[in-house]
């Protein structure tokens, strides 16, 4: 079990409204293995993104435990969670969520700069990654001057700049045309694998889900291996 980087046990997530309690996740058990790619698929609104957010320390489970090494994410402080997101996790969202006033290089280097305060060092790593995703000619472009596929490639570079153990990708190609989507998914799998990180992919696209080594299906809040 030494290669488990993230472990979820009996995780539930309930959103309470005035009318009812919505059980989004029910007793989810999941181990993310080091260097492996996993996909979680399921229909829209089934709780895939909520599960990803819990794994990424952006949300907390209503019950159950999420362990990242010795850190229990459900009980961690905000500072511990921020540090976890900064060093262990890399996010790639459906929408690129690049900061619009920052260039491609600045967006990609930002997590490293925020962590170390070393701008030249952060830029150096970000340049290498942007080169790896084929954007070395677009370093000084703001998101407004990049295509959808290019933006998502910058987001991939940003997710990897701190050498995270786990990359969490939420519908990473969901907003792209088919050609761009293919390019981005190939890059995502190859670049993450080259850096020895685990990839957790959330998608409702069966073809994309099928590219992962381990596949899960989320239905009615319950996770099952495919």
């Amino acid at each position: 079990m030494s290669d488990v980087v993230l472990s979820l046990r009996d995780v539930s997530r309930v959103f309470s409204t005035e009318a009812e309690d919505l059980h989004i996740l029910r007793s989810v058990d999941l181990d993310i293995l080091s260097g492996r790619s996993s996909s979680i698929s399921g229909p829209s609104g089934c709780g895939k993104s909520t599960l990803l957010s819990i794994m990424g320390g952006l949300d907390r489970p209503s019950s159950g435990t999420v362990m990242a090494g010795q850190l229990d994410l459900g009980k961690a402080t905000e500072t511990q969670l921020a540090s976890y997101r900064s060093t262990v996790i890399g996010f790639v969202f459906q929408s690129h969520y690049l900061l619009k006033d920052f260039t491609a290089l600045e967006n990609a280097m930002l997590p490293a700069f925020m962590l170390s305060g070393d701008r030249p060092g952060s830029e150096r790593v970000a340049r290498e990654l942007l080169d790896a995703v084929g954007l070395s000619a677009r370093l000084d472009h703001t998101p407004a001057r990049l295509s959808g596929g290019e933006r998502q490639r910058v987001a991939i570079a940003r997710a990897l700049v701190n050498s995270p153990s786990v990359v969490l990708a939420d519908e990473p190609t969901g907003s792209l045309d088919e050609d761009s989507a293919r390019t981005v998914e190939e890059l995502l799998f190859s670049v993450v694998a080259e850096r020895g990180a685990s990839l957790v992919l959330v998608t409702h696209d069966p073809r994309l889900a099928g590219l992962a080594e381990v596949r899960y299906q989320l239905r009615n809040g319950t996770l099952a291996t495919v």
Binding site: L99, K100, D101, L110, F113, M114, G117, R119, T142
Partner: peptide, 21 residues
């Protein structure tokens, strides 16, 4: 976060860039 990135992000959020959307 150290002072330099805080300064960098604050200045960029406030001043912006001409070629931003």
């Amino acid at each position: 976060m150290k002072g330099a990135p805080v300064f960098f992000i604050a200045s960029r959020l406030i001043a912006g860039r001409n070629d931003a959307s």
